[in-house]
């Protein structure tokens, strides 16, 4: 299929983009286009106007900012994977992004686009929630910083206002003994996961002091499972107990490839797989 008609506007700078977005509530931002264009081509979406922000300079910066790693919204998945500052400060990012689509898609798809889109099956929103990241948005009234756990409201729904644009994400630098571990199950390398888990762990394999579990491709947004994490810390890995706990904590939503029952099973097994990756 082909996209319906829309007008195209190449934004000159951030203010220009904010102004158009504020005045046309059926306009949408075009960043890497790797989620938006499939939706347009399939006519799942028919906005009046696309505001192309991909050529705005300065929005793809990656740097250490105080106690955080800042990734600019327009940094592509490939940029982030090849960046030394990211590699040194957040080594899990490479392994995670390797599972996001395929190289030609990662050459265009952006970090900010993935965060802003809020696809429940996407890895980065779950990573942002698991690491307590802050999402920086810019609008008519200036910038605001939103904690990732408050950013995601539901299926493709975020707290971002019509006049706002994501400009970057701040990930707190890892503390000593802290590790981010990740795994997912998918049908083909690079496809969206059937279920995935990002764990934020303090301690070592035999001595876990703190554990945060955030699942993706399970419900309508990144699913935090604090109760199950506590149970796992107290009792160790027990498939039946953890499965039972997850079933009360997450509203599993089945899709074409996997039923909600299957996702519940995969999520439970993922806890074991992820914990086994920790060093002793």
């Amino acid at each position: 299929m082909k996209a319906a008609h829309f007008s195209y506007h190449e934004a000159l700078n951030l203010q220009d983009a904010i102004k158009i977005k504020a005045h046309d509530d059926e306009s949408v931002i075009l960043a890497g286009g790797q989620s938006l264009l499939p939706a347009l081509n399939m006519r799942l979406s028919s906005p009046t106007c696309l505001i192309d922000i991909s050529k705005i300079s300065g929005l793809n910066e990656i740097k250490i900012d105080g106690q955080t790693l800042f990734i600019g919204a327009l940094a592509t998945h490939s940029d982030v994977m090849n960046n030394k500052t990211v590699k040194n400060n957040m080594p899990c990012m490479f392994d995670i992004l390797k599972m996001v689509a395929h190289p030609a898609i990662r050459n265009k798809g952006t970090h900010g686009g993935s965060i802003a889109y809020g696809d429940p099956a996407a890895e980065l929103p779950a990573l942002a929630v698991a690491t307590n990241a802050e999402i920086i948005v810019s609008g008519q009234n200036g910038d605001r910083s939103i904690n990732a756990k408050d950013f995601y409201l539901g299926l493709f729904e975020t707290t971002i206002n019509q006049d706002e644009i994501v400009v970057g994400i701040k990930y707190p630098l890892l503390k000593k003994g802290q590790k981010i571990v990740f795994d997912e199950v998918c049908r083909r390398h690079g496809d969206y996961a059937m279920a995935g888990l990002i764990a934020n762990v303090m301690g070592s394999k035999n001595d876990i002091k703190d554990l945060k579990l955030v699942f993706f491709a399970t419900g309508d947004k990144p699913d935090v499972a604090d109760k199950t994490a506590r149970l796992c810390l107290e009792n160790g890995y027990d498939y039946d107990k953890l499965k039972n706990s997850l079933s009360t904590e997450i509203d599993f939503a089945g899709d074409l490839n996997s039923s909600s029952e299957m996702k519940l099973h995969l999520a439970t097994v993922l806890i074991k797989k992820v914990l086994s990756k920790l060093e002793i």
Binding site: L30, G33, L50, S54, S78, I105, N107
Partner: peptide, 12 residues
Amino acid sequence: KAVRSCLVLASQ
């Protein structure tokens, strides 16, 4: 760089 030409607008 390799890109999907179905996911890039000609105008881009």
